[in-house]
């Protein structure tokens, strides 16, 4: 084996090593991109699934006589979507976000105040003998 061959082989090996290193870097980059969002999702999803179960048991314990107030109050609390509408309006995102966010704030405020008020009105009518 001449020193020239050896040098050629070494160069070849070095080249392969560099390709490998590049691949590894690529994989690592992909992994780095995916790992942080993946963890919060499964964390949020676990909470979601557990909340569905809580909802299931809590709602079955609601007396049928109060099913109308139940609908009105669930309507009011689902308007907690106002949180998203407020962030859209108040943070410097885009003109579209400001406008749509503001409209959403108005819409769900109707729901929040109307929903809780009408629930209260219904519930205050339920009286014992």
């Amino acid at each position: 084996m001449t020193p020239a061959d050896l040098a050629a082989q070494a160069a070849d090996l070095a080249h392969q090593a560099s390709i490998l290193a590049q691949n590894a870097a690529g994989v690592a980059a992909v992994a780095a991109q995916h790992v942080p969002p993946a963890a919060p999702f499964i964390y949020l999803f676990s909470i979601f699934v557990l909340a569905v179960f809580v909802g299931y048991y809590v709602v079955w314990s609601v007396t049928p006589a109060l099913h109308s107030p139940l609908m009105a109050v669930t309507n009011a609390i689902s308007s907690v979507i106002i949180v998203g509408a407020m962030l859209a309006t108040g943070l410097h995102g885009s003109i579209v976000a400001h406008v749509l966010g503001f409209l959403a704030v108005v819409l769900v405020s109707v729901n929040i105040f109307g929903g809780f008020a009408v629930t209260n009105r219904m519930l205050s009518m339920f009286k014992k003998k």
Binding site: F45, F48, V58, T74, I81
Partner: peptide, 19 residues
């Protein structure tokens, strides 16, 4: 709620959905 990562929305949505 999932989109904006907000706990209150996710939990409330699940409650209302199952109700």
């Amino acid at each position: 709620g999932f989109t904006i990562g907000n706990l209150a929305l996710i939990i409330t949505g699940a409650l209302v959905g199952s109700s």
